[in-house]
Amino acid sequence: MWFRLRDRRLAGFKFVRQESVGSYVADFCCREAKLIIEIDGSQHADNPRDTIRDTWLASQGYRVLRFWNAEAMTNTIGVLDTILAALPPSPRVRGEGRDDLVVGATSGSEGEGACPPEPHSLPPPHPRLPPRFGDDEVAEALSPRAGRGGDSG
């Protein structure tokens, strides 16, 4: 689950793990959305301490989502979709980032706040890495000599 939540991989929301909240420790926490995700084993079934804990966290403005270990392992996409549904609208702007943040997510480019589709263009190159081109024609067209006229080879 951490692999799917870390590095703002879930719609741009920052999650941290093993976050202290008061005297409790949350498995995963999105501070900006005040959302706590707990992945629990069977020892948490009907645990009165968890009820007290969840009540206190709610009094602090947090929402707690609990999932069984087995569900997180066998239905990861469903768990991520449930988490995504509990989050406010994404902080990402106009769909920036990877398309596969949540494979099963039903959201797309439609809906409230959607921008009209723009023509596809290549993302800007990474500022610290040199460009890599698969064919020489593209590399030649983008070389420093491109667009200077007269010099054909």
Rank of each mutant, 00 (worst) to 15 (best):
P124E: 09
S143A: 14
P123W: 09
V79E: 06
M73I: 07
E140I: 13
F13Q: 03
V25L: 08
R6K: 14
L80H: 02
R92C: 11
S143V: 04
P88S: 07
E140Y: 12
G111V: 09
C115Y: 13
Q60F: 05
T74Y: 05
G111K: 07
V79A: 12
I36E: 03
H44F: 03
G104T: 10
F3L: 06
T74A: 13
A86C: 08
G61T: 00
W2Y: 06
L84T: 02
L5C: 04
R66N: 03
Y62G: 04
P89Q: 14
K34T: 06
L5E: 01
K34V: 10
P124Y: 11
R66T: 06
R92W: 00
R6A: 13
M73D: 14
D100S: 08
E140V: 10
G104A: 07
D136S: 05
G108W: 12
M1W: 04
D100I: 06
F15L: 09
S109A: 15
Y24K: 03
E32Y: 02
G95S: 12
L87G: 02
L87I: 01
G111D: 10
S152Q: 10
R145I: 00
C30E: 05
Y62C: 07
S20V: 02
S20T: 06
E19M: 09
D81N: 13
P125F: 02
E71A: 07
E118W: 12
D27Q: 03
S143L: 11
L57G: 00
I39W: 00
L122Q: 11
C30M: 04
G134F: 04
A146V: 05
A141N: 11
G97M: 01
R31Y: 06
R63L: 05
T51S: 13
D54M: 07
